[in-house]
Design a protein around this nucleic acid. Structure first.
Lengths: 143, 143
DNA sequence: CTGATATAGTTAGCAAGGCTAATTAAATCG
DNA sequence: CGATTTAATTAGCCTTGCTAACTATATCAG
Protein backbone atom coordinates (compact mmCIF):
# COMPACT_ATOMS: atom_id res chain seq x y z
CA UNK A 1 0.00 0.00 0.00
CA UNK A 2 3.05 2.24 0.04
CA UNK A 3 4.90 3.08 -3.18
CA UNK A 4 2.18 2.58 -5.77
CA UNK A 5 -0.35 4.69 -3.96
CA UNK A 6 2.25 7.38 -3.56
CA UNK A 7 2.80 7.50 -7.30
CA UNK A 8 -0.95 7.51 -7.87
CA UNK A 9 -1.35 10.38 -5.42
CA UNK A 10 1.27 12.30 -7.36
CA UNK A 11 -0.47 11.44 -10.63
CA UNK A 12 -3.71 12.75 -9.21
CA UNK A 13 -2.24 16.05 -8.07
CA UNK A 14 -0.30 16.57 -11.27
CA UNK A 15 -3.47 15.92 -13.23
CA UNK A 16 -5.41 18.48 -11.21
CA UNK A 17 -2.69 21.07 -11.56
CA UNK A 18 -2.64 20.62 -15.34
CA UNK A 19 -6.41 21.04 -15.57
CA UNK A 20 -6.37 24.12 -13.38
CA UNK A 21 -3.52 25.71 -15.34
CA UNK A 22 -5.06 25.15 -18.75
CA UNK A 23 -8.46 26.39 -17.69
CA UNK A 24 -7.02 29.74 -16.73
CA UNK A 25 -4.70 30.06 -19.70
CA UNK A 26 -7.44 29.21 -22.19
CA UNK A 27 -9.62 31.98 -20.85
CA UNK A 28 -7.15 34.40 -22.46
CA UNK A 29 -8.05 33.05 -25.90
CA UNK A 30 -11.48 34.62 -25.79
CA UNK A 31 -9.79 37.94 -26.62
CA UNK A 32 -8.76 36.63 -30.04
CA UNK A 33 -12.41 36.28 -31.07
CA UNK A 34 -11.60 32.91 -32.66
CA UNK A 35 -13.31 29.73 -31.45
CA UNK A 36 -11.05 27.22 -29.65
CA UNK A 37 -10.79 24.46 -32.26
CA UNK A 38 -10.13 27.02 -34.99
CA UNK A 39 -7.47 28.78 -32.97
CA UNK A 40 -5.75 25.50 -32.22
CA UNK A 41 -5.69 24.46 -35.88
CA UNK A 42 -4.43 27.91 -36.89
CA UNK A 43 -1.66 27.57 -34.33
CA UNK A 44 -0.46 24.33 -35.94
CA UNK A 45 -0.37 26.07 -39.32
CA UNK A 46 1.46 29.15 -38.06
CA UNK A 47 4.06 27.27 -36.02
CA UNK A 48 4.31 24.14 -38.14
CA UNK A 49 3.86 25.55 -41.63
CA UNK A 50 1.60 24.46 -44.48
CA UNK A 51 0.10 20.95 -44.35
CA UNK A 52 -2.46 18.74 -46.03
CA UNK A 53 -5.90 18.43 -44.50
CA UNK A 54 -5.29 14.87 -43.32
CA UNK A 55 -2.03 15.80 -41.62
CA UNK A 56 -3.68 18.74 -39.94
CA UNK A 57 -6.52 16.52 -38.73
CA UNK A 58 -4.00 14.03 -37.35
CA UNK A 59 -2.04 16.78 -35.61
CA UNK A 60 -5.23 17.99 -33.95
CA UNK A 61 -6.45 14.48 -33.19
CA UNK A 62 -9.74 14.89 -35.02
CA UNK A 63 -11.23 13.20 -38.08
CA UNK A 64 -10.82 14.69 -41.53
CA UNK A 65 -14.46 15.82 -41.90
CA UNK A 66 -14.18 17.76 -38.65
CA UNK A 67 -11.01 19.48 -39.85
CA UNK A 68 -12.50 20.15 -43.26
CA UNK A 69 -15.24 22.17 -41.61
CA UNK A 70 -12.82 24.01 -39.30
CA UNK A 71 -10.72 24.97 -42.33
CA UNK A 72 -13.89 26.15 -44.11
CA UNK A 73 -14.55 28.53 -41.23
CA UNK A 74 -10.95 29.77 -41.03
CA UNK A 75 -10.91 30.29 -44.79
CA UNK A 76 -14.12 32.29 -44.79
CA UNK A 77 -12.63 34.49 -42.06
CA UNK A 78 -9.55 35.02 -44.25
CA UNK A 79 -7.19 33.37 -41.76
CA UNK A 80 -6.04 30.45 -43.93
CA UNK A 81 -5.75 29.67 -47.63
CA UNK A 82 -6.44 26.41 -49.48
CA UNK A 83 -4.56 25.57 -52.69
CA UNK A 84 -4.41 22.38 -54.71
CA UNK A 85 -1.23 20.36 -54.32
CA UNK A 86 0.34 20.29 -57.78
CA UNK A 87 2.12 16.98 -57.14
CA UNK A 88 -1.06 15.23 -55.96
CA UNK A 89 -4.16 16.93 -57.21
CA UNK A 90 -6.40 15.09 -54.71
CA UNK A 91 -4.66 16.89 -51.86
CA UNK A 92 -4.94 20.47 -50.65
CA UNK A 93 -2.24 22.64 -49.14
CA UNK A 94 -3.50 24.65 -46.20
CA UNK A 95 -1.50 27.59 -44.94
CA UNK A 96 -2.06 30.56 -42.66
CA UNK A 97 -2.54 33.95 -44.27
CA UNK A 98 -0.65 37.03 -43.06
CA UNK A 99 -3.76 38.05 -41.19
CA UNK A 100 -4.10 34.61 -39.59
CA UNK A 101 -0.47 34.60 -38.49
CA UNK A 102 -0.73 38.11 -37.05
CA UNK A 103 -3.85 37.33 -35.05
CA UNK A 104 -2.41 34.08 -33.78
CA UNK A 105 0.76 35.81 -32.69
CA UNK A 106 -1.13 38.33 -30.63
CA UNK A 107 -3.08 35.55 -28.92
CA UNK A 108 0.02 33.53 -28.30
CA UNK A 109 1.73 36.49 -26.70
CA UNK A 110 -1.30 37.08 -24.49
CA UNK A 111 -1.39 33.48 -23.27
CA UNK A 112 2.31 33.18 -22.56
CA UNK A 113 2.42 36.56 -20.87
CA UNK A 114 -0.46 35.55 -18.64
CA UNK A 115 1.27 32.37 -17.55
CA UNK A 116 4.62 34.13 -17.20
CA UNK A 117 2.99 36.68 -14.92
CA UNK A 118 1.74 33.88 -12.72
CA UNK A 119 5.15 32.24 -12.69
CA UNK A 120 6.76 35.54 -11.76
CA UNK A 121 5.01 35.28 -8.40
CA UNK A 122 7.41 32.47 -7.59
CA UNK A 123 10.99 32.48 -6.45
CA UNK A 124 13.76 31.66 -8.86
CA UNK A 125 14.22 28.38 -6.99
CA UNK A 126 10.58 27.45 -7.50
CA UNK A 127 10.81 28.20 -11.20
CA UNK A 128 13.90 26.00 -11.37
CA UNK A 129 11.83 23.20 -9.83
CA UNK A 130 9.20 23.66 -12.50
CA UNK A 131 11.90 23.76 -15.15
CA UNK A 132 13.21 20.36 -14.05
CA UNK A 133 9.73 18.96 -13.67
CA UNK A 134 8.75 20.00 -17.20
CA UNK A 135 11.63 17.95 -18.53
CA UNK A 136 10.66 14.98 -16.38
CA UNK A 137 7.02 15.24 -17.49
CA UNK A 138 8.04 15.35 -21.13
CA UNK A 139 10.14 12.25 -20.56
CA UNK A 140 7.32 10.45 -18.78
CA UNK A 141 4.70 11.29 -21.41
CA UNK A 142 6.82 10.61 -24.50
CA UNK A 143 5.27 7.94 -26.71
CA UNK B 1 15.97 40.37 -23.20
CA UNK B 2 17.20 38.21 -20.31
CA UNK B 3 14.97 37.43 -17.33
CA UNK B 4 11.55 38.08 -18.76
CA UNK B 5 12.10 36.01 -21.85
CA UNK B 6 13.41 33.21 -19.67
CA UNK B 7 10.20 33.16 -17.66
CA UNK B 8 8.17 33.30 -20.85
CA UNK B 9 10.14 30.39 -22.27
CA UNK B 10 9.36 28.41 -19.15
CA UNK B 11 5.70 29.41 -19.39
CA UNK B 12 5.65 28.19 -22.96
CA UNK B 13 7.17 24.81 -22.16
CA UNK B 14 5.00 24.29 -19.10
CA UNK B 15 1.95 25.11 -21.18
CA UNK B 16 2.92 22.58 -23.84
CA UNK B 17 3.61 19.89 -21.26
CA UNK B 18 0.19 20.43 -19.67
CA UNK B 19 -1.57 20.17 -23.02
CA UNK B 20 0.33 17.04 -23.95
CA UNK B 21 -0.37 15.38 -20.60
CA UNK B 22 -4.09 16.08 -20.59
CA UNK B 23 -4.54 14.96 -24.16
CA UNK B 24 -3.21 11.53 -23.32
CA UNK B 25 -4.98 11.18 -19.99
CA UNK B 26 -8.35 12.19 -21.43
CA UNK B 27 -8.13 9.49 -24.06
CA UNK B 28 -8.67 7.00 -21.21
CA UNK B 29 -12.12 8.44 -20.56
CA UNK B 30 -13.48 7.01 -23.79
CA UNK B 31 -13.63 3.64 -22.02
CA UNK B 32 -16.31 4.92 -19.61
CA UNK B 33 -18.75 5.43 -22.49
CA UNK B 34 -19.79 8.76 -20.97
CA UNK B 35 -19.35 12.00 -22.90
CA UNK B 36 -16.72 14.39 -21.50
CA UNK B 37 -18.91 17.16 -20.07
CA UNK B 38 -21.16 14.58 -18.42
CA UNK B 39 -18.24 12.71 -16.92
CA UNK B 40 -16.78 15.91 -15.55
CA UNK B 41 -20.06 16.97 -13.94
CA UNK B 42 -20.53 13.49 -12.48
CA UNK B 43 -17.05 13.70 -11.02
CA UNK B 44 -17.93 16.88 -9.17
CA UNK B 45 -21.01 15.18 -7.72
CA UNK B 46 -19.19 12.02 -6.68
CA UNK B 47 -16.21 13.77 -5.10
CA UNK B 48 -17.95 16.89 -3.87
CA UNK B 49 -21.36 15.54 -2.89
CA UNK B 50 -24.86 16.73 -3.72
CA UNK B 51 -25.30 20.30 -5.02
CA UNK B 52 -27.84 22.61 -6.58
CA UNK B 53 -27.87 23.06 -10.33
CA UNK B 54 -26.48 26.57 -10.19
CA UNK B 55 -23.61 25.53 -7.95
CA UNK B 56 -22.81 22.64 -10.24
CA UNK B 57 -22.85 24.95 -13.26
CA UNK B 58 -20.49 27.34 -11.47
CA UNK B 59 -18.17 24.50 -10.49
CA UNK B 60 -18.00 23.39 -14.11
CA UNK B 61 -17.74 26.96 -15.42
CA UNK B 62 -20.77 26.67 -17.66
CA UNK B 63 -24.13 28.45 -17.70
CA UNK B 64 -27.14 26.95 -15.96
CA UNK B 65 -28.99 25.96 -19.16
CA UNK B 66 -25.96 23.98 -20.29
CA UNK B 67 -25.77 22.17 -16.97
CA UNK B 68 -29.51 21.58 -16.93
CA UNK B 69 -29.18 19.64 -20.15
CA UNK B 70 -26.13 17.70 -18.99
CA UNK B 71 -28.03 16.69 -15.85
CA UNK B 72 -30.99 15.64 -18.04
CA UNK B 73 -28.69 13.27 -19.90
CA UNK B 74 -27.06 11.89 -16.75
CA UNK B 75 -30.47 11.39 -15.18
CA UNK B 76 -31.85 9.51 -18.16
CA UNK B 77 -28.78 7.26 -18.00
CA UNK B 78 -29.50 6.61 -14.32
CA UNK B 79 -26.23 8.16 -13.15
CA UNK B 80 -27.66 11.04 -11.11
CA UNK B 81 -30.90 11.83 -9.29
CA UNK B 82 -32.80 15.14 -9.04
CA UNK B 83 -34.94 15.92 -5.99
CA UNK B 84 -36.66 19.10 -4.90
CA UNK B 85 -34.98 21.00 -2.11
CA UNK B 86 -37.54 21.05 0.72
CA UNK B 87 -36.14 24.31 2.19
CA UNK B 88 -36.36 26.13 -1.13
CA UNK B 89 -38.79 24.55 -3.53
CA UNK B 90 -37.36 26.45 -6.51
CA UNK B 91 -34.08 24.59 -6.12
CA UNK B 92 -33.12 21.03 -7.00
CA UNK B 93 -30.69 18.73 -5.23
CA UNK B 94 -28.57 16.76 -7.65
CA UNK B 95 -26.64 13.74 -6.46
CA UNK B 96 -24.86 10.78 -8.03
CA UNK B 97 -26.58 7.40 -7.90
CA UNK B 98 -24.76 4.24 -6.79
CA UNK B 99 -24.39 3.35 -10.45
CA UNK B 100 -23.00 6.77 -11.29
CA UNK B 101 -20.50 6.64 -8.48
CA UNK B 102 -19.37 3.13 -9.43
CA UNK B 103 -18.84 4.03 -13.08
CA UNK B 104 -17.03 7.21 -12.18
CA UNK B 105 -14.74 5.34 -9.83
CA UNK B 106 -13.73 2.88 -12.49
CA UNK B 107 -12.91 5.72 -14.89
CA UNK B 108 -11.01 7.61 -12.25
CA UNK B 109 -8.92 4.57 -11.46
CA UNK B 110 -8.17 4.09 -15.15
CA UNK B 111 -7.04 7.68 -15.59
CA UNK B 112 -4.85 7.83 -12.51
CA UNK B 113 -3.35 4.42 -13.21
CA UNK B 114 -2.47 5.50 -16.72
CA UNK B 115 -0.69 8.60 -15.50
CA UNK B 116 0.95 6.71 -12.63
CA UNK B 117 2.29 4.18 -15.12
CA UNK B 118 3.88 6.98 -17.09
CA UNK B 119 5.34 8.49 -13.92
CA UNK B 120 6.72 5.11 -12.91
CA UNK B 121 9.10 5.37 -15.88
CA UNK B 122 10.91 8.06 -13.93
CA UNK B 123 13.42 7.91 -11.11
CA UNK B 124 12.35 8.65 -7.58
CA UNK B 125 14.36 11.89 -7.85
CA UNK B 126 12.45 12.96 -10.96
CA UNK B 127 9.12 12.29 -9.26
CA UNK B 128 10.31 14.38 -6.31
CA UNK B 129 10.98 17.21 -8.75
CA UNK B 130 7.45 16.91 -10.09
CA UNK B 131 6.11 16.79 -6.55
CA UNK B 132 7.78 20.10 -5.73
CA UNK B 133 6.77 21.61 -9.04
CA UNK B 134 3.11 20.70 -8.52
CA UNK B 135 3.15 22.67 -5.30
CA UNK B 136 4.82 25.62 -6.98
CA UNK B 137 2.32 25.51 -9.86
CA UNK B 138 -0.60 25.46 -7.43
CA UNK B 139 0.88 28.47 -5.69
CA UNK B 140 1.43 30.34 -8.94
CA UNK B 141 -2.04 29.64 -10.28
CA UNK B 142 -3.99 30.32 -7.09
CA UNK B 143 -6.55 33.09 -7.52
C1' DC C 1 -50.53 41.01 3.57
C1' DT C 2 -49.90 42.08 -1.03
C1' DG C 3 -47.57 43.69 -5.14
C1' DA C 4 -42.86 44.20 -6.95
C1' DT C 5 -38.60 42.19 -7.37
C1' DA C 6 -35.20 38.66 -7.17
C1' DT C 7 -33.73 33.90 -7.64
C1' DA C 8 -33.64 28.77 -9.32
C1' DG C 9 -34.33 26.24 -12.92
C1' DT C 10 -36.10 25.05 -17.53
C1' DT C 11 -37.25 25.61 -22.48
C1' DA C 12 -36.28 27.23 -27.10
C1' DG C 13 -33.29 28.05 -30.47
C1' DC C 14 -28.67 29.02 -32.34
C1' DA C 15 -23.48 27.94 -33.23
C1' DA C 16 -19.29 25.16 -32.77
C1' DG C 17 -17.17 21.01 -33.01
C1' DG C 18 -17.07 15.96 -32.56
C1' DC C 19 -18.41 11.53 -35.15
C1' DT C 20 -19.62 7.82 -39.13
C1' DA C 21 -21.21 6.75 -43.75
C1' DA C 22 -21.28 7.82 -48.36
C1' DT C 23 -19.54 10.39 -52.33
C1' DT C 24 -16.19 12.50 -55.68
C1' DA C 25 -11.90 12.86 -57.83
C1' DA C 26 -7.28 11.63 -58.47
C1' DA C 27 -3.47 8.36 -58.09
C1' DT C 28 -1.64 3.85 -58.20
C1' DC C 29 -1.30 -1.02 -58.90
C1' DG C 30 -2.02 -5.56 -61.35
C1' DC D 1 -7.11 -0.36 -68.75
C1' DG D 2 -9.90 -1.65 -64.86
C1' DA D 3 -9.80 -2.21 -59.79
C1' DT D 4 -8.32 -0.45 -55.71
C1' DT D 5 -6.60 2.98 -52.68
C1' DT D 6 -6.25 7.60 -51.06
C1' DA D 7 -7.55 12.76 -50.12
C1' DA D 8 -11.02 15.46 -49.32
C1' DT D 9 -15.79 16.77 -49.00
C1' DT D 10 -20.83 16.36 -48.10
C1' DA D 11 -24.71 14.84 -45.41
C1' DG D 12 -26.57 14.03 -41.29
C1' DC D 13 -26.27 12.90 -36.57
C1' DC D 14 -25.01 14.06 -31.35
C1' DT D 15 -22.95 16.84 -27.59
C1' DT D 16 -22.04 20.99 -25.50
C1' DG D 17 -21.56 25.87 -25.34
C1' DC D 18 -24.39 30.32 -25.41
C1' DT D 19 -28.48 34.04 -24.78
C1' DA D 20 -33.29 35.18 -24.34
C1' DA D 21 -37.49 34.22 -22.52
C1' DC D 22 -40.41 31.72 -19.40
C1' DT D 23 -42.32 29.41 -14.91
C1' DA D 24 -42.38 28.88 -10.18
C1' DT D 25 -41.02 30.07 -5.77
C1' DA D 26 -39.14 33.20 -2.30
C1' DT D 27 -38.36 37.61 -0.37
C1' DC D 28 -38.87 42.38 0.58
C1' DA D 29 -41.16 47.11 0.93
C1' DG D 30 -44.88 49.57 1.98
Amino acid sequence: MAKLNKIEDLADRLHSAAIHLLRQVRAEDAATGIAPARLSALSVLVFGGATSLNDLARAEQVRPPTMSRIVDALESEGLVRRTVNAQDRRAVVIEATEKGAAILWQGRKRRVKFLAKRLSRLSEAERKQIESAVQAIQKAMAK
